[in-house]
């Protein structure tokens, strides 16, 4: 394994992670809810969901974050590496998979592991493993 030191950003990673952890903590301690993005979004798409206003406002905050950020400085670098067919396929798989799996990086990876849920640990190991495998296949077998 070769570490990419040029792109390694430990301090912003730790600070950004702390903000994510803080936000998830506030949402559970104050609102009694899990800050799982796919779960919040998915439940808003269904009928008969409770607490629509709180869920929608959390997601609105997420949408508004880059606007608030850009009041104070330039947005960090954002680079897409996937063409439109890949984006469509990826979006479909992420939407379908997170609903069947009851969560994503935030709901399982952050909130679930923080409450020591075995289900979330298994889910996190599963999506990390298939994420690593997919990039390996696409970058080193398919294109390589």
């Amino acid at each position: 394994m070769v570490i990419d030191w040029a792109h390694f950003t430990p301090w912003t990673a730790l600070a950004g992670g702390a903000l994510i952890g803080l936000a998830a903590s506030l949402f559970v301690v104050l609102n009694g809810r899990i800050a799982g993005i796919s779960g919040l979004l998915g439940s808003l798409l269904q009928r008969g969901t409770d607490g629509r206003d709180e869920k929608a406002l959390f997601l609105l905050g997420l949408l508004a974050a880059p606007l608030l950020w850009s009041l104070f400085g330039a947005l960090p670098e954002i680079e897409f590496q996937t063409g439109w067919p890949g984006l469509v396929l990826a979006g479909l798989l992420v939407g379908l998979g997170t609903r069947y799996g009851s969560g994503c990086t935030s709901g399982h990876g952050v909130c679930g592991i923080s409450r020591l849920s075995p289900r979330s640990l298994v889910a996190t190991l599963a999506f990390m493993a298939s994420g690593f495998a997919t990039v390996f296949v696409l970058r080193h077998l398919w294109g390589g």
Binding site: L63, S102, V122
Partner: peptide, 28 residues
Amino acid sequence: RLIGGSLLFGIGWGIAGICPGPALTLLL
């Protein structure tokens, strides 16, 4: 469902490098 769904999600994550939270932050 938990494991199969999570595996599918990981494949999508690996194709584009985008999971649901960042997808929304990038939207605007």
